[in-house]
């Protein structure tokens, strides 16, 4: 099987986000970059499918800045065979990213049997790229997947919907599956894995190489700003057993009379 994994590199979840002075994006100079957490599940799932289907290859594809290749190196250290990077700024819209991923997959010369992605990237939180890419490739796809089993031709996947309910889908490969937390437990990259990853092939492409231009832009962002700070709230001490009941009664009362939410 030719297995592809699409990954994104995003700021670490503990990052404090600061808009640039001209408000066109965020300051990226001092950010710690990580692989998008949901993409780790996609890489792990690719490696599990590869292990179950002898002779399969796992190729990782990423669109983004070449300043740091952490996400691709991590994926290869976990066990992926090779990688493609489409060099671009880190704030392309979902349509451009999906089109670039499609172009990079075509450039690999391999026809995908299975494409795995995270369900969404935790930077722009759009939850669009997997569905756009599948539509562009005319592939069936299921998103927000928490369960995967099957063969090299047919898979059964579980998609999580409202309230933790699950839709169970039967899908014929080739298909695109977008993974959510819960589908598996991603492995850690071993030290030998990290050393080996340095020698694995990483091909760099430009947006022009994969047929993407400014004409593909669909979404315009501007006026990046921090959310308004809330004025400080009221704080009550209920550590003393004698005050507890009074404090709770007061807060519950305020929820009705002051906050008017009950």
């Amino acid at each position: 099987m030719n297995i592809f994994v699409c990954v994104k590199q995003v700021p670490d979840t503990e990052t404090k986000i600061v808009p640039t002075a001209d408000a066109t994006f965020i300051e990226t100079s001092s950010i710690k970059w990580i692989m998008n957490p949901y993409d780790e599940f996609a890489v792990e799932q690719a490696l599990l499918v590869q292990a179950a289907n002898a002779g399969s290859t796992v190729t990782v594809v990423r669109v983004g800045s070449s300043k740091d290749t952490e996400a691709l190196r991590t994926a290869m250290a976990m066990g992926a065979d090779d990688a493609f990077l489409v060099e671009a700024q880190d704030n392309l819209d979902s349509y451009m990213i999906a089109k670039a991923l499609k172009g990079a997959i075509a450039k690999s010369g391999k026809t995908p049997d299975l494409i795995l992605t995270g369900k969404q990237a935790i930077d722009d939180d759009c939850l669009q790229v997997p569905q756009i890419l599948a539509t562009m490739l005319n592939m069936p796809s299921v998103s927000v997947v928490v369960g995967y089993e099957g063969s090299a031709t047919d898979v059964t996947v579980k998609r999580e919907i409202e309230g933790g309910a699950l839709e169970v889908y039967g899908v014929k490969l080739p298909a695109l599956i977008a993974c959510n937390k819960g589908i598996n437990t991603p492995r850690y990259a071993s030290l030998p894995g990290i050393m080996k990853a340095k020698k694995k092939p990483l091909t760099t492409l430009s947006l022009a190489d994969v047929g993407v231009s400014d004409a593909d832009k669909r979404v315009k962002y501007s006026s990046f700003q921090l959310p308004p700070e809330k004025p400080p709230g009221k704080k009550f001490d209920a550590t003393d057993a004698g005050k507890m009941n009074g404090v709770v009664k007061e807060v519950v009362g305020l929820l009705r009379t002051e906050a008017k939410v009950l």
Binding site: I122, D125, Q225, L226
Partner: peptide, 8 residues
């Protein structure tokens, strides 16, 4: 964006 750490 960034789960609400900023808006645009």
């Amino acid at each position: 964006l960034f789960a609400g750490k900023c808006f645009a």
